[in-house]
Design a protein around this nucleic acid. Sequence first.
DNA 1: AACTTATTCTATAGAACTATAGAATAGTCG
DNA 2: CGACTATTCTATAGTTCTATAGAATAAGTT
Lengths: 207, 207
Amino acid sequence: MKRLPVRPKASRNRRRRAAEIIDAAAQVFARRGFHGASTQDIADVLGVRQASLYYYFPSKEDALEMVCARGVEGFVEAAISVTEARGTASDKLRGLIASHLSPLRDRGDYVKVFLNERRHLPTESRRRIGRLSRAIERIFEDVLRAGIRSREFRGDLDPRLAALAILGMANSVATWYCKELNASVDRVAATFAALVIDGIRRKGRRR
Amino acid sequence: MKRLPVRPKASRNRRRRAAEIIDAAAQVFARRGFHGASTQDIADVLGVRQASLYYYFPSKEDALEMVCARGVEGFVEAAISVTEARGTASDKLRGLIASHLSPLRDRGDYVKVFLNERRHLPTESRRRIGRLSRAIERIFEDVLRAGIRSREFRGDLDPRLAALAILGMANSVATWYCKELNASVDRVAATFAALVIDGIRRKGRRR
DNA sequence: AACTTATTCTATAGAACTATAGAATAGTCG
DNA sequence: CGACTATTCTATAGTTCTATAGAATAAGTT
């Protein structure tokens, strides 16, 4: 086993160092998937020995849990605060979409891992995180339902199906947003919201 | 090593047997992901020894390639034939969405694997399959562009972004469609198409 | 400096997994 | 039936990976 060229300095702040570790894990899990990534891969990103990681987490699965947790962190709170503000159902939906895409800006890897790898979590934490997912679906659904009740949205809309459609659309951004950065997250959010609210068909000469 | 309870009969048709093997692989890869699934898992589904699989494929990666190939098989052809039919741009888009969701009915696992695991393919086959993906995106994009030119769709639409949105929405169905079968694939397709074409907002008193 | 604690390192046990080799069994056909 | 081919099995080499133990080094403190 070879000696590392330069021994990295130990951080004086454990918290900060732990965040660096989890950040590297997020990066690697996002790229190769949980099972496709080895703890060695994470260590390589940090320039550290594989075994050193275990000072910061007790198992690879726990690392995944930390990444996933940060991947949904704040999603629900942000969504709730959007729905509690004043405004039409359309406004709220626009806000929901924007707040849902927002974490892609600074936590893209975490979100990707949450979306694609959460199924590999051990049962208990998977359940816990699954509840958060469903909470978010519910919030979208409720806004749609409210819009239908207020006659702002079409009465023939299936709120559950529409919520899944909108979330599917929004979540798909995580797979390409970093590659094609000619569109900012805000612009994507606005475009998507306009698309589902008014549709793509030209208006004016209808009915 | 224990003896298997009943030795499975050898199929007299190699083709058919190979299809069974790949089917089991699709099922297992869909559930656990490529790296999360072992060849043992596949063998368990078939009630066969792990090593027996290697009579049908030379490596696990090749099995993934076969699954992915069948996961996109016919997508492009079906999409092209839709766009070549007569009809408005809206009709074509509806048709595209329907034909894109159609394989979920009988090949859900293959589609899931194609969508989620193709990134784990070795470089060359990943490229080849990536080209097919891009071809499909292009087809959607072209229909949108044609609709804009014919003034059927709004002029301010970004066709690339809209195509990605619609595909993201459609592809997301693969993650939940088998769990919640209270909606048939056809109904989902129709709902989604209506959603993006006309939007969710109630019409009639506008402009 | 001497001592104490925090962090990383070396080394490795032990498990799991892919893939190969060659034996054994089942099916087919003269 | 006996020979021939197809398919599956047993057994295992060799690799990779997670996680632990204990030594070594860096940082902080008195």
